[in-house]
Design a protein around this nucleic acid. Structure first.
Lengths: 160, 160
DNA sequence: GCCAAATGAGAGTTTTTTAGTCACCTTTGA
DNA sequence: TCAAAGGTGACTAAAAAACTCTCATTTGGC
């Protein structure tokens, strides 16, 4: 019940691409070193993202990768589903074969609702928006830590 | 990113217990055969549910298991967390050690929201309510299939 | 006290999934 | 033709999940 490293890495890479000026490209090795991703693994992830048509790739000298769609049209859900396949919170949501009780089971309905809501939230913000929020919050963290001597309150994080 | 069989089995067992008259108990073997659960596995799950104080167990002749709390106070979230531990949709939601960017990362916030919403939905209905819905829907399915010759529309299932 | 019926618990196995590695292939521009 | 980029498949290692087996413990009734 957890995002895999593949999904995690894909998100990092796409977020990096989304932070570049539109149309700009970069290299796999660059992303791998900046975002702590094993290069061989990133290669395969990039290949999957290209097959899902989220990015363009170009081989050879001067080549690299870049977004195939505007950063404000892409969401976390797009990225995750591109590398992990469609999200199914339970096996019974894949299809009616898993469980003979699906036709009347109330638990199925609850999972269905949870899954739908989760997809909604994962697609509620574009990569462009996420990059913008990051930039803003990063600058906040910096100004906070530089004025740490003042004892200003830190940013609140929620590990419920 | 999916419920394990352990969680699935635990839910089946708890739903069965919740469907009994309050205070009634039953045996592991009974639940295992009724709900298609390997008995040895169910033993351990039952043991976990007991440690989490969701059920009472009693050994010996005439023993068995029963709910330790009223069925309308228990939710799917209780059951899942009892056997699978707390739900964390990503590693960075477990704690700040996984990722150095947590303090400002917008993706973290989105996952946080998704996780919170998912927990909300999983605890929005009590086991008692789920049992009641099941009973109602089962009777609907039966009356539908007995009048199938009329070509009545079937219950709609959503595999988005 | 003994027996049978019930849960409890630990070690170990098998299977599946995830993560990562390695070696080599293909494309491409200078 | 070379070097720099991405592409691919086979493989291994590690972790998690699912399951099996065996024996221990508790308990009520005879």
């Amino acid at each position: 019940m957890q995002l895999t490293m593949t999904g995690e890495y894909a998100i990092r890479a796409m977020l990096h691409l989304a932070s570049l000026p539109p149309g700009d490209s970069t290299q796999i090795t660059e992303i791998a070193s900046l975002w702590e991703i094993p290069e061989n693994i990133l290669r395969k992830i990039i290949s999957q993202l290209a097959k899902a048509q989220l990015i363009f790739t170009q081989r050879g000298i001067g080549g690299g990768i870049r977004l195939a769609q505007p950063a404000d049209k892409l969401t976390l859900l797009d990225v995750i589903e591109a590398v992990e396949g469609k999200i199914y919170l339970t096996k019974c949501l894949i299809g009616p074969d898993f469980c003979s009780r699906t036709s009347w089971c109330a638990v199925h309905l609850v999972w269905c609702e949870a899954q739908q809501k989760m997809k909604e939230i994962l697609s509620s913000k574009s990569l462009a928006e996420l990059v913008a929020i990051n930039d803003f919050r990063k600058s906040q963290v910096q100004s906070l830590s530089s004025s740490q001597a003042n004892g200003l309150n830190n940013i609140e994080l929620n590990y419920s």
